[in-house]
Design a protein around this nucleic acid. Structure first.
Lengths: 199, 199
DNA sequence: CAACCGATTGACTGGTCAGTCAACCAGTCT
DNA sequence: AGACTGGTTGACTGACCAGTCAATCGGTTG
């Protein structure tokens, strides 16, 4: 049996797709662009994937499951609710820091495109909101968070704030240096947990 | 000269486009869909607009300028910084409440699609962030807001949180009743200004 | 009425791509 | 060697659609 060809063409194609999608956007990417970038014949893309859509689906699913795992892990830890929120923020920011192109594709083409593409993935996206909401709800139980704000609502605000920051970096609306990333982690949590008004 | 034809076809087309874009998304809308919805011949769309893109541009620009004006007006008022933030949140939420289809189109197809379409409008979008940031900065001057959070950063978090809520309503991830709208206005401000942790 | 002009119509064209498929190639097994 | 298999190739097709344009309509002016 088996080969495990030294070079995994399927992986090549996926990686190439990230680069091309990030550069041109999903819609204006031709399948031939992916093939070219991967230095592979046009038809091979269809050998490994059912359609152009499936390539994006795969990229999203691969990554999103990591996020879901990270949230669950944060939740399972014995940290304070606030530290759990910190962990989630840190995971997302670091994801962007280490793989900006992939995150750009996921956010721009899926998460923020709930219309076209994201529609298929709404359930998974929603699971992230729900898991974060659970952290908030537990925090409320413990008295660490105020009880008059609906957890799902808080979760959406929190996630929305983070995603907006990533968008800002992606579209170069705000500066994106290493220190900006570190600050961002702290500041989102500070904003959401402590608020803008002085204590 | 002049007529002012009782029925303004250009307006018809614009309104029809909102409905169709909201229903099917910009990309999967054919120009013929717009013409059909407006009960107008295909070619007429091109009589009034240079291209399909221009229709969307027009819709966005029309609306966004109202938002910018609303922010400026809030800023110019003699209210507290927090009340100014409230006014901005209220304006956006009410916009959605009264014209959900238009807001859906603007958010989904422009604001959150900074890749394809929004790219053209980044400057205008940015202006909104900047104007909100100015409110925050003034609040810091006055001592109403803490000074260790960058105004632009705060502005992005605030706007991101609101937009995320709209997205939640748009994609039916969270319930959207009249009371939800009213609550939302208060809760975003409470979250961002006071924070999740009890005072 | 005749000339004019902007609004309106919808058939048609040109270009673009996603996806198909028949052929080819390189191992592996017998 | 011969047969088989799965990876690999890229030319080709069918569908789709934005935008064009020549023709028509209806109202106004002189």
């Amino acid at each position: 049996m088996a080969k495990a060809p030294p070079i995994d063409k399927r992986r090549n194609i996926l990686d190439a797709a990230v680069r091309v999608f990030a550069r041109q956007g999903f819609h204006s990417t031709r399948v031939s662009d992916i093939a070219d970038e991967a230095e592979v014949a046009y038809g091979l893309v269809y050998h490994y994937f059912k359609s152009k859509d499936e390539v994006l689906n795969e990229l999203f699913t691969e990554r999103w499951s990591l996020l879901l795992a990270a949230i669950d892990e944060a939740d399972a830890s014995s940290n304070t609710p606030r530290e759990k929120m910190s962990a989630v923020a840190a995971f997302i920011v670091d994801s962007y820091r280490h793989e900006p192109e992939l995150m750009k594709v996921i956010i721009v083409e899926v998460t923020r495109a709930a219309n076209s593409f994201g529609r298929t993935h709404l359930p998974e996206i929603r699971r992230a909101y729900d898991s974060i909401a659970k952290i908030v709800a537990d925090g409320q139980e413990l008295g660490a968070f105020r009880r008059d704000i609906d957890p799902v609502f808080a979760s959406m605000s929190f996630y929305g704030a983070i995603e907006q920051l990533l968008s800002g970096w992606i579209f170069e609306v705000i500066p994106a240096s290493a220190t900006d990333f570190e600050q961002a982690k702290e500041l989102v949590v500070a904003t959401i947990c402590d608020g803008l008004e002085p204590r």
